[in-house]
């Protein structure tokens, strides 16, 4: 099939790609743009490793066609820290040791930022439920909850 031009706005930067329509946003990021911070754990919406923000909302890059994301603002883990300053959620993840191997971590962090923004970080129970779409096989869950709680409190104050 012929390739089509796809314009993507990622972390405030404009990218132009010539790709087949079937290329997912995840493969566009990882294989075409060198933005490998977004991870592939399952490629089927079953793990959350590929979580990015589109227009400020958390979504899965593996089930989004790159072409569908045209005209929308995409944020990946690489775009979260501003001017070298860690995002408060990133800082909380480091402080709370909310990861081990780090593979699920970009997805966890993108999910956590959105979780707080959505207002779904009101209690530990709510955090657990609304972070359940990000699997962590290393089992960092209790520390992830602590990090999200801490960052949410920082935002609130």
């Amino acid at each position: 099939m012929t390739k089509i031009p796809v314009h993507l706005d990622i972390n405030g930067r404009h990218h132009e790609l010539q790709i087949e329509p079937r290329v997912t946003l995840l493969d566009a990021l990882r294989e075409r743009l060198g933005l490998t911070g977004t991870k592939k754990g399952c490629d089927h919406g079953q793990c959350g490793a590929c979580t990015v923000h589109i227009d400020g909302e958390r979504v899965l890059a593996c089930l989004t066609l790159a072409a569908q994301a045209e005209g929308r603002a995409i944020t990946t883990i690489e775009g979260l820290a501003r001017e070298g300053e860690l995002h408060p959620v990133q800082a909380a993840f480091l402080e709370r040791d909310a990861f081990q191997c780090g593979y699920c971590t970009p997805g966890q962090i993108m999910s956590a930022v959105a979780c707080i923004r959505e207002g779904h970080a009101g209690s530990d129970e709510e955090i657990r439920e609304y972070m359940a779409g990000n699997l962590c096989r290393c089992g960092a869950y209790p520390h992830i909850v602590a990090a999200v709680r801490q960052a949410a409190q920082e935002f609130a104050s």
């Binding site: 979580t51 979504v59 609304y130 779409g133």
Partner: peptide, 9 residues
């Protein structure tokens, strides 16, 4: 249903 990310899509 599903996960927060899937529900946003």
């Amino acid at each position: 249903a599903a996960s927060a990310q899937i529900r946003n899509m």
